[in-house]
C-alpha cells in the first residue's frame, strides 16, 4: 500500500504575496483580505488549484495579494472570465472578487447570468456604496441623496439591493457579512465554498476616504447588536443586546416586524425560525433595513441544485456515447460524400 504523506498544512502567510498592498490605510479591504488568508488554510484546497478573478475597482486588486493563481480582468466582466475558467477546468476553485460598481453597474448583466446559470464558484461583492478608485462618485448602491463629485445636489436614483438582486436572479446561495466581523467572515467564506453552484456573498465594506461610516447605523459597536440579526439555520431570529428582540410575520400583513420577548405575551415560540431553504423568507430577510428592522447578516438562502458544470458534464458523457472523438477523418466524411476516379 502506498503511504500518502499528508500535505503540510498551510498558514495564512503562505497565501500572502510579496506585493505591497496599495489600498488606503484603514480600508475595509485589508480586513477582508486577512479573513480570506486565514480561511483558505482551513478549507484545505491546494494553492495551485485556487484562482481569484476580479474586474476593475479597488476590490479588484485583491488577486495581486493572494499567492494563488489570479486574473485581474476588465471592468464588470469577472463573472464571464470565471465562467470560461470553470468551463475549461471545472476542478479549479474559483473566487470572483468584485465591488458594487463593478458587479451591479457595468457588470450587472454578467452577475445576473452567472447566478442564474449556477456556475460553481464564489462571488464576493465588496459593497462600499461608492466608486472609490475613480475618486468618490455615487454608485448603484448609494442611497438616494448621496452627495458626490458627480451629484453635488445629491443623487436622484434609488439604490439596488445586491442581495435581493442575487435572489431575484435565482442564486442558490446568498449570504452577507461585514468587513469588521473577523470571526463571522471566515465562516461565511467556508459555507460559500462548500456550496455546489454559484455562491453570492455581499460584504459591507467601509470606504474610509469617500464614504466613511456609511454602514454605521448598523455596524457601529454601540448599535450593532440592536440593528443586526445574525442568521443561523434552524435557530429563532432573535437579536439585541439583551437577546430579547425577535422577528415574526405580522399577523395581519405579509410583513416582518420586531417584537420583544416577554412583552405583550410574546414568548420565544412566537419568533420565526430561520430556514435557509425557504425562498419566501430569504426575500423578506434580504429586504430588511434599519431603522424599523435589523439588517440580516449570515446565510440568507442556501438551497443547492446541480451546477452548470454538472450539466455540461452530463452532456459530454452523452456525446461520448456517439464516439470517442479521436477520428477527425471520420468527422470530415460524415454525411454524403462521393468519389471521383481517374
Amino acid at each position: 500500500m502506498n503511504v500518502v504523506t499528508p500535505p503540510e498544512k498551510l498558514t495564512p502567510k503562505d497565501f500572502a504575496t510579496d506585493q505591497e498592498v496599495r489600498w488606503c490605510p484603514g480600508c475595509g479591504d485589508y480586513a477582508i483580505l486577512k479573513a480570506m488568508q486565514r480561511t483558505l488554510p482551513e478549507i484545505g484546497v491546494s494553492k495551485e488549484n485556487i484562482v481569484f478573478v476580479s474586474g476593475i475597482g479597488c476590490a479588484a486588486r485583491f488577486p495581486y495579494y493572494m499567492d494563488t493563481y489570479g486574473f485581474h480582468t476588465i471592468h464588470g466582466r469577472a463573472p464571464a472570465f470565471a465562467t470560461g475558467i470553470k468551463l475549461a477546468n471545472p476542478d479549479l476553485d474559483v473566487w470572483v472578487v468584485t465591488g458594487d460598481g463593478d458587479a451591479l453597474s457595468i457588470g450587472g448583466n454578467h452577475l445576473l447570468h452567472v447566478l442564474r446559470r449556477n456556475v460553481n464558484l464564489q462571488i464576493l461583492l465588496f459593497n462600499n456604496e461608492i466608486y472609490g478608485l475613480t475618486k468618490g462618485q455615487y454608485s448603484p448602491t448609494s442611497r438616494a441623496g448621496t452627495r458626490s463629485p458627480s451629484t453635488p445636489y445629491g443623487s436622484i436614483e434609488n439604490p439596488v439591493s445586491a442581495t435581493a438582486l442575487a435572489l431575484g436572479a435565482g442564486a442558490r446561495f446568498v449570504a452577507r457579512s461585514v468587513d469588521t466581523m473577523q470571526a463571522h467572515l471566515p465562516e461565511v467564506f467556508k459555507r460559500a465554498h462548500e456550496h455546489n453552484g454559484a455562491s453570492f456573498v455581499e460584504i459591507f465594506q467601509n470606504c474610509i476616504v469617500y464614504n466613511d461610516g456609511v454602514f454605521g447605523e448598523f455596524t457601529a459597536r454601540d448599535v450593532a447588536d440592536d440593528s443586526q440579526v445574525i442568521l443561523e439555520h434552524g435557530k429563532p431570529l432573535i437579536f439585541g443586546k439583551e437577546k430579547n428582540l425577535g422577528l415574526r410575520v405580522k399577523p395581519d400583513l405579509f410583513e416582518m416586524e420586531v417584537v420583544t420577548i416577554g412583552k405583550d405575551g410574546i414568548s420565544e415560540k412566537d419568533i420565526l425560525v430561520h430556514d435557509e431553504t425557504n425562498r419566501g423568507l430569504a426575500d423578506m430577510l434580504a429586504r430588511m433595513e434599519p431603522p424599523s428592522l435589523p439588517v440580516a447578516i449570515g446565510v440568507i438562502f442556501c438551497h443547492p441544485t446541480p451546477s452548470y458544470e454538472d450539466g455540461v458534464k452530463g452532456h459530454m458523457n452523452e456525446a461520448k456515447k456517439h464516439g470517442d472523438g479521436k477520428d477527425i477523418n471520420a468527422l470530415l466524411r460524415r454525411g454524403h460524400t462521393w468519389t471521383i476516379t481517374d
Partner: peptide, 27 residues
C-alpha cells in the same frame, strides 16, 4: 461535436462571449 472535446457556451452577450473564451484559454 462535444465528443470531439468541444464545449460550447452561449453567453449572455458578445462581451461575455469573448471574456469567457479568454478565461477558457487562461485555464
Amino acid at each position: 461535436l462535444m465528443e470531439y472535446d468541444v464545449v460550447t457556451f452561449q453567453a449572455e452577450d458578445e462581451i461575455a462571449a469573448i471574456c469567457s473564451a479568454i478565461g477558457a484559454s487562461y485555464a
